[in-house]
Nucleic acid binder design. Sequence first.
RNA 1: GCUCGAGUGGUGGAAUUGGUAGACACGUUGGACUUAAAAUCCAAUGGACAUUAGUCCGUAUGGGUUCAAGUCCCAUCUCGAGUACCA
Length: 940
Amino acid sequence: MIYDFNSIEKKWQKFWADNQTFKADNNAEKPKFYVLDMFPYPSGAGLHVGHPLGYIASDIYARYKRHKGFNVLHPQGYDSFGLPAEQYAIQTGQHPAITTEANIKTYRRQLDQLGFSFDWSREVRTSDPKYYKWTQWIFIQLFNSWYNIDSDKAEDIASLITIFSSEGNTNVNAVCDEDIILFNAAEWNSFTTKKQQEILLQYRLTYLAETEVNWCPALGTVLANDEIVNGVSERGGHPVIRKKMTQWSMRISAYAQRLLDGLNTIDWPQPLKDSQTNWIGRSQGAAVTFYTADEKKYPISVFTTRPDTIFGVSFMTLAPEHELVAEITTSEQKAEVEAYIEATAKRSERDRMADVKTISGAFTGAYAEHPFTKEPIPIWIGDYVLAGYGTGAVMSVPCGDQRDYDFAKHFNIPIPNIFEGVDISEEAFADKEKTIIANSDFLNGLSYKKAVKTAIYELEKLGQGKGKINYRLRDAVFSRQRYWGEPFPVYYVDGMPQMIATDYLPITLPEVEKYLPTETGEPPLGNATTWAWDTVANKVVANAEIDNKRVWPLELNTMPGWAGSSQYFNRYMDPHNNNAIFSEEAINYWQDVDLYIGGSEHATGHLLYSRFWQKFMFDRGFVPKDEFAKKLINQGMITGTSAFVYREEGTGNVISKNLINGKSVIPIHADVSLVNASDELDVEGFRNWQKDYKNSEFILEDGKYIVGREVEKMSKSKYNVVNPDAICEEYGADSLRLYEMFLGPLEQSKPWNTAGITGVHSFLKKLWKLYHSGADSSFVISDEEPTKDSYKTLHKTIKKVEEDIENFSFNTSVSTFMICVNELTAQKCTSKEILEPLAILVSPYAPHIAEELWSKMGHSKSISTAEFPKFEPSYLVESSKKYPISFNGKMKFTMELSLDLSKDEIEEAVMEHEKTQQQLQGRTPKKVIVVPGKIVNIVG
RNA sequence: GCUCGAGUGGUGGAAUUGGUAGACACGUUGGACUUAAAAUCCAAUGGACAUUAGUCCGUAUGGGUUCAAGUCCCAUCUCGAGUACCA
């Protein structure tokens, strides 16, 4: 009987589906284990061989944990809102829901054929109204919450209203907008409802605010910083400009410190933690207030990490956008300042980035007063100061900061030296550790640390400063001018946002004629004709019914891509619950994700926002853990191996790689499916594929055309995409699963080369043969007592595979299986004692063949219910060891010695050996190092 | 520029606390079987010299620690990822 993988795999995939083998129970006696993959965006291109890498790894782990007696939750779903489907809709008029549905079908078929043990009964789709009902629900919870710094957590907005109406806001310590007015209880109670709502909005965790955004006119949308590459949109490469818009924001900044602290409690890759740490960008220093030297005494607050250098300030720099600029600029300087502001506004992000070195700025003509020396300090504006960071103003200390130094040099501003014994004639001195402060009044002679403390103390005495921690992390804009996203459960009464009661969720996406922004520049939902909220009937009605009494307009923006993915891991716990985002029983049973596998590209997007929402959900008592994933692994990327043919310039001949010899050629991508393992091109196939080359002359070497190879990212445009469907057809899913693991460590990126798959495929055939040693290769398994060697082979395999899986070293397990099967084949082992546990060992990696062998051995239940074989160390105990005998650290020969020997006995035996004498050639060794069980090294 | 990660045969990669470098595969070469091909099996395969032993060199480069270094320390180079004037 041959190994007919195609029918075996189909058979077991059907068995698993029919029997719901991997359906997870929400209240089992067994301990829980939650293995999660980052769910995919279902793109039109389908899966290529790089996509399943992480899914295979997590599937192996999930299957292993089942064997180990855990109740495993291993769900899968789709992040199905997103721009590509919308772009396609704009181009073709096809509704994104239809495109998405079709793409999901392809994904599902491709995932199924790989034999994953997903519990598909729990599938979620972010674009499904039954799912996004709960995304809208979370939004409402955020709206109805504020961040209390005293309790250091989010609380219900009702508690804030209670405080306002009983004592006003003077004692409230909250994370809120900067421009808060102070009021007492009586004033609060006398405010109009609208006024009260305006004030509350300044405290809510999601709030409407005027934000400066990256507006892309061509796409009609706002882009996040990470959606802009080199100043143009990542998709399409359209120009991006800065623009002010009223948008929903998330007060993630409230959680900056906790997001930082939480990193210490989770087992995530260090590079990922580092990039979140950088993104949050905590810096400790002081807020200092300077006052202008004129009679108006405008306060200018700055943030500095170096309050110890305050006596080195020789000018101040404001961002050109700073609101004080217009107020303080003198009439003489007005023209110059305005010209500079205009020039910077025109400069695109791209120009600014490409040109970091150019120093530019303008003098405002105004002066500030130094808090201690009372000397006048000139106030400049310069675009190296960013309006969006800190206060948009800096105290410039040219001797201690290179940018300030460069600016001062360029504009001939004095550079006072406040460091003892340091030369600053060439560059600024930014070292904190070796600093001794000089020329600084009461700070003279102090070290950095002491000077910082003293400076802050003195500033506080003056009432002109205090210690402060600043974060780079900005509140996250949550509005998108797009169609294919979650609608907000929000309508507007007199311009003030109102939440729709959660009973009436979901608010489903309206139908529109066109998916583009409206002619008046409103988002695509502005095209909807049935998009108004009837506050009495509590339903969406036609826009024509808007009377601004009972029927009001609905929000036109939709939510960003990360909305749907920020709590999906919790929704999987109870995905069909229509009364709650999840039941208490479900969340209390599953708690959190034990293992999360996905790409590192989500480091500062999805993974930061999810942690933020999780902490919010924790504060409000919805979830028991404030971090959602205990352990996270980034799988590396599988790159493609592109193939190139070379067209000679001039002649147009296509020259085989080794015949180029310095000729001037242009490399052209060839489809990798036209190239065999020996880099030979199917010339006829190439001619038929690229009609332009139909009649070109191909210059061959030894009758073959040899292509060039290069490792690149797998993409359609490089013709290097390898599709898993064809591989499953030719070698089977088990081969593909094994091979993807065999390629190398999970976390490393590595190039794909289909040729190597024959190695794991023939391993599976050998495995099959081990169980089919009868006449006509029929199934044979015996009750014979296994040999010692067979036991040893099995148990060293159990040990290694178990260690490997626990350490996520899946590549080495595959090698271990190969060695095991090679050895058992040589031993002619047919014992059930050995072959039964072997099938279980293999089953997480190659589940189809394992199920088939398992059932042939007479089992009626799935192999996934079998217990993982227990490692028995006694089978590996050795009585002797083949010692490597080294001379001066270099191994010369080996010697078999009993492990019972003492150090001295070993030394004696080694010294007596004739090869030792031969090596020594009569010399007496200076020293003999004996490490029992390891090595002998003879020195001298 | 800064932060982080990585450099091992022709290729993917192995190598526990420092203890036989190159496991396991791919590829290549030779052989068996076959009319032939595929499949399968056997042997060789880091480099150089010697081809019988054997000797020397080898884990990016240069130093160091050690009886012993791919592994630890210092410096340099190269590649990859993240970030972009963060005061």
